[in-house]
Design a protein around this nucleic acid. Structure first.
Lengths: 328, 328
DNA sequence: CACTAGCACTATTATTCTACGAGTGCTAAT
DNA sequence: ATTAGCACTCGTAGAATAATAGTGCTAGTG
């Protein structure tokens, strides 16, 4: 258990280090705290003993360890009230009546990314939660057409396909069949239903039914199984701990991987959760702060991704604010 | 005018430097060329005089200047036959009958990006070349719907909109009106036509016609006026001349700017064109190699973007090969 | 007993110096 | 016209040095 003063010291070190990424010495802390640097040094070595602080070398100042950040986030941090200016910027986005919710979310995350210099992410609902609402086919020219898939949550995807020797009429009939028989099915089960419910029927009256079936099969099996929107990836380039190319390469390759980002959603906690360093699964120097949101049948996850040395208090408040605004 | 031997020397230096980005000394060249290093040195200083070579410091080896690369590309380079392996990889993409052309192009550019370690780009046709084919509206839930716009070239965009107190019937009528009256119009003229041809009509029978008009107006005015597809941006991270973060920042910000990339298309040359260094408008160390393609009513531009120190011969052959395959 | 002043010690950083090597330019000889 | 030879230049790598910011520990104080 930590004493009050140890908490104080830890808090000061974390906040100082977040402002300016250089190891913090005892003298700096003793200025703010009403005691000598020697006393602070003793407290510091206690905190190091407890695994909350680290040294970069034997005679350097202290840096928060992963556990140090953890302790700070769980026990010491007090959410920082957003500035009026920041709130105003977000409000102008939220109050735009013309925009659909999904657009509002993306726009506001852009604003947040610019205000904080961190990367932001929206994860939409997964394909097994999206139900097929309707498909549309529009012929483009001889033998080529575009298939449009719309889900009950307003997610839209399209794919251009090529068909030889299939009449438009046959295609239209198949489309009707799909809309009548399998609308309402979760997207990731549509492929299977196509095989059992549609293929046998079109087999009877469409000459090139194999081809037609395959085309639709691919449309659904290629359906993005997760809406992912990463905003401000380049913000990492201006963070000092990511000044070497290899680190950027690993982080970018992770951020480009939707399956991996998808994992952020996995836990069932609806509140704000903080994944620090190795917990982030992205890089030991990265922190992910996320929350789920739900508004009507729209649901998903918001995340802010930045260096471990992140302005936790500010980001947590912003996410809370976002969540509140989205949910009403 | 350069002598034959000077050409030889320049060619060797450029090719050596492209393989390995360290300044090339006279000794290295004299090994391949049947003459002494002193002779080579004389030729080198002539080439430097002519502005085709540069030194990094008074006693360093030579590096090609921008004009040096230019001369190499225009006069010395001989297109390099693609390896069977490379061709095979691309052929498997091109021979996939199921994919629409646009998907084939993107897929093959992914392959090229991986083979070469350069970034690739497809620019589709601009919005004034795309004609409105059809719009579709699908209601999602109370007061929200998705509008889908399809162009004659199979380009599809959608937007979720919110409408209060507008009946589905009124929306459907408006959609029919648009499909009947302004299909066939270039996308970037649709907004204007909406105002003159649709607004007056719906004004008569739709209560909330302002709102409805505004919604559609925004759908078209937000239409992406240029299809841009950048593949393998991260390849720049592994190029030695882009090992410092600031350079990466400037390059990435340019590559993220569709308007700027759009400029690549601007010249009317249908053949392969090479923009070296400052000509690339991206960065002095960047080269853009591009060509236009046309297949039926699908047309656009392909580009390969990499360091100025690019394998010009290989890339030019690949682009030629791509263009040929796309155009039939 | 908690605190602190003081001091020896340690690692990093910046600076300077040195030696080395790869390269050039020029001159004189072939 | 070519080339061998040599003096010269500059960048790089490594070692030595000094300065600095920090620590840990000890001993003394309220």
């Amino acid at each position: 258990m930590l004493t009050d003063r140890q908490c104080e010291v830890l808090k000061l070190i974390v906040e100082k280090y977040i402002k300016d990424p250089i190891p913090v010495g005892s003298k700096t802390i003793s200025k703010t705290l009403k005691c000598s640097s020697a006393t602070v040094r003793n407290e510091m070595s206690a905190l190091e003993e407890a695994g909350l602080l680290e040294k970069t070398h034997t005679s350097s100042g202290r840096v928060p360890s992963e556990n140090g950040y953890r302790y700070y986030v769980d026990h010491l941090m007090e959410p920082k009230k957003m500035t009026g200016e920041d709130m105003l910027k977000l409000q102008t986005v939220f109050h735009n009546q013309q925009l659909a919710l999904s657009d509002v979310i993306v726009k506001s995350l852009q604003v947040i990314s610019d205000m904080t210099n961190y990367t932001t992410v929206v994860l939409g609902s997964t394909s097994h939660e999206n139900l097929l609402k309707q498909i549309e086919v529009v012929p483009i020219d001889e033998g080529s057409m575009v298939v449009i898939v719309i889900t009950d949550r307003g997610h839209v995807e399209h794919k251009n396909i090529r068909l030889q020797n299939v009449s438009l009429d046959e295609v239209k009939k198949t489309v009707n069949l799909i809309n009548n028989l399998i609308a309402g099915t979760p997207i990731d089960e549509v492929s299977a239903k196509l095989e059992y419910e549609i293929k046998p029927i079109i087999g009877k009256y469409v000459k090139q039914h194999e081809q037609l079936y395959n085309a639709f099969y691919h449309v659904f099996s290629d359906f993005t199984n997760q809406e992912v929107n990463v905003v401000g990836k380049n913000k990492f380039l201006s963070q000092p701990e990511f000044s070497n190319i290899e680190k950027i390469q690993t982080v970018f390759s992770k951020l480009d991987n939707p399956e991996l980002l998808h994992k952020i959603e996995e836990d069932d906690d609806n509140n704000i959760k903080v994944y620090i360093g190795s917990e982030s699964k992205i890089d030991d120097d990265v922190t992910v702060i996320k929350t789920k949101f739900k508004n009507g049948n729209q649901e998903g996850t918001l995340a802010i991704i930045g260096p471990k040395r992140m302005e936790y208090d500010r980001v947590v408040s912003m996410l809370e604010y976002m969540k509140e605004n989205i949910e009403r």
